[in-house]
């Protein structure tokens, strides 16, 4: 349902009607929230235990629908991580840091905070390498300018 509000929002941005944008972000999503969160939660709370038992009876955990639902639940976070990777990965080599972090947690059992510390060290190393790369051409151009001056002096002599 939020896609509907966003569709309206894009039309307003195209028309430069920016004062209507807060409706898209702060007002209309309440309708989505009431429809898909508040009403179902209140309905289930009011319906109580008999409805919960009915659901357990009609949708057993070893049935295809619930197995599919929980398998989908395990797979869907992959989409979120893939969206983050889309921002970082430009070529195949960019997967190496990702797989390195994956290895830290999956194979070496390192937790997230410790992984962040290890990643921080690699970030420092990358930064220093990049800064050395930047300084190298600058140093090279300075030394070539100094050599030209020396040659001129030699010619003078």
């Amino acid at each position: 349902m939020n896609l509907v509000w966003q569709h309206m929002g894009w039309a307003w941005v195209d028309k430069r009607e920016y004062d209507k944008l807060p409706l898209v972000d702060y007002v209309f999503p309440w309708i989505s929230h009431i429809c898909f969160s508040l009403i179902p939660t209140v309905a289930m709370c009011m319906a109580g235990e008999p409805v919960v038992n009915l659901i357990k009876e009609k949708l057993p955990m070893d049935g295809i629908p619930m197995k599919t639902l929980f398998t989908v639940g395990a797979l869907l976070p992959c989409v979120g991580i893939a969206i983050l990777l889309k921002q970082i990965v430009r070529n195949v080599l960019d997967f190496i840091p990702y797989l390195f972090g994956f290895t830290l947690a999956a194979s070496m059992g390192i937790n997230l905070v410790a992984s962040t510390v290890v990643a921080g060290l690699f970030a420092i190393l990358i930064f220093k390498l990049k800064m050395l790369e930047l300084r190298k051409p600058a140093a090279a151009s300075q030394s070539s300018a100094a050599d030209n001056g020396w040659d001129d002096d030699e010619e003078d002599i």
Partner: peptide, 10 residues
């Protein structure tokens, strides 16, 4: 970020 995202995935 790439390393941390890998650790988060795992």
């Amino acid at each position: 970020g790439g390393i941390v995202i890998g650790a988060v995935s795992a």
